[in-house]
Amino acid sequence: MQIPALSIKKVSHNFGDFKALDKVSLEIKPGDFTVLLGLNGAGKTTLYSLITRLYNNNSGSIEIYGYNVRSQSVNALKHIGVVFQQPTLDLDLSVSENLNYHSSLHGISKLDASEKIIKEITRIKMDDQLKKKVRSLSGGQRRRVEIARALIHEPKLLLLDEPTVGLDIGSRQLILNHVKTLCKKNKLAVLWATHLIDEIDKGEKVVIIDKGKVLDSGDVEKIVKKTKTKNIREAFNKLVGIKT
């Protein structure tokens, strides 16, 4: 039996009296591109914070390639690359300095890091920008550098939390295509959180989340058929209760 890249079982989380997540369960297989679709405030970022152990989950379990995030965090976190919703690059450092810093946080030697940095930065076609300060890059370029950074330590699971927010259509498409290509070529499992329905293609797996609950999950076609709608937009609106 294949070990899931990510397995979340009955995870709940409260902020005081507010229930941010309510018995959330989902599973991602290696090589899957899964979209976590939900409106702002649905609980996507809270879920990411629990998966990456920024916060501890106090109920349910989260496993990455079979390693429990809470009790086997070193092995679990080794397998993930993360692109957060907020930009997290150090603006005062160059692209190369930022990437080297990330490599050291994963214990990669300088020699290995140089090779991996060149490989990733070339893949996003920004090898001529290595010496540039991050502050001088555009929003789309910064995002691409963050994706390159998340891949330097060769993770098997990539988590992206609304990575295209605030970007123009061209940059959005570029980033989305880049990640989808990586997923297909490298068998990388991806969890892509978004509230933008047009980022979902036919045949992809979707998890619809609202008010901390998973409303439905599965292939786009399956959800559309189940909700008796014409497309994923209508299905989402119906499940979440948006009247059009």
């Binding site: 990456t52 965090s73 993930i80 690059l89 946080l105």
Partner: peptide, 18 residues
């Protein structure tokens, strides 16, 4: 607040060492 602390905290190296 700006988020860059997160990159350090999600490293697999134990947090006390970081």
């Amino acid at each position: 607040e700006m988020g860059s602390m997160k990159t350090m905290l999600v490293s697999p190296i134990p947090r006390w060492f970081l």
